[in-house]
Simulated assay, not measured.
Amino acid sequence: MASTSTSGRGEEERDPFLVLEPPNKKIKSSLTAKQYDVFINHRGPDTKTDLALPLYNSLQQAGIRTYVDAPETELGDYFPSAIKNAISSATLHIAILSPRYAESAWCLAELSLMFQTRARIIPVFYRVQPSDFRYIKNEVADAFRKHEEKEKEEGRYTKHDIQQWKECLENVSGIKGYEIKEQNE
């Protein structure tokens, strides 16, 4: 399995999912590659019920092939491969950024891969301010302190991974998107 790819700018990009792969990388997926129009990136405990699944259902009803992990990943699918395929095939990504979004290495790895595909990303700032991500402050800063501790203690992530995640959050905060301040707004 290749760990890097060459970007259009002549530099190598590390596969953001390497930090999530099990030590035995010989796992093969029985996944049949599906094509999606939209990939919804979100932190499940924060937004799945209130925002991600209702959005998914609306898009599906409109005939738009949409990926959200729970309804789209089938039994027996290798989860990292299913997500990589969905992100790579989608022409539009929706990133739902929530108060605890940055705690999830999965969310951050997905966002990094979304940027690598160069497809359009629409951010939805759900009960957060874009500036929290632009300047890595408040809950976002707390989450990165924890990632840095894991990097030192467990070697799970590299400094490069953490820096790449920060850059992705800073970049996504500069994209015109939606702000949802309260659940009923």
Rank of each mutant, 00 (worst) to 15 (best):
I40M: 02
A143K: 01
G8L: 11
E72L: 05
L59K: 00
R100M: 15
R14W: 04
R14K: 11
S112Y: 06
N57C: 04
A82R: 14
I27K: 15
E167T: 15
K26M: 12
F39H: 02
R118F: 12
I162T: 04
S104I: 04
D69E: 11
S3K: 12
T158P: 10
Q164M: 11
F115T: 00
H160F: 13
N24I: 03
L169K: 03
G174T: 03
D69K: 05
S173D: 00
T73W: 06
F115K: 08
Q60R: 09
K84S: 08
V172D: 01
S81F: 11
F125K: 01
N138W: 11
I136Q: 09
Y157I: 09
S98C: 06
W165A: 05
Y126K: 09
N171R: 14
A109T: 07
G174D: 05
R120D: 07
G8D: 13
E139W: 07
W165M: 06
P130R: 09
R127Q: 13
E103I: 07
Q164A: 09
L55H: 00
C168G: 03
E72G: 09
A109M: 07
R145T: 14
E170V: 12
V38L: 11
V172G: 02
E153T: 14
E21W: 09
V128T: 15
V38T: 12
E167C: 08
E139C: 06
L59M: 00
N41K: 03
V68Q: 07
Q183E: 10
G63M: 04
C168L: 00
Y101S: 04
E13H: 07
P99Q: 05
E149D: 06
E11I: 09
D132R: 01
A143H: 04
S104Y: 07
L18S: 05
R14D: 02
M114S: 15
H147G: 01
G44D: 03
S5V: 13
I162V: 14
E103W: 11
E151D: 09
H147M: 02
I96W: 01
N85C: 12
T158K: 15
P45W: 05
P54S: 01
R145Y: 07
K137R: 15
P54G: 02
Y126E: 14
H147A: 03
R120G: 06
F133M: 02
L97D: 02
G76P: 01
Q116F: 05
N138M: 04
T49I: 11
Q116E: 06
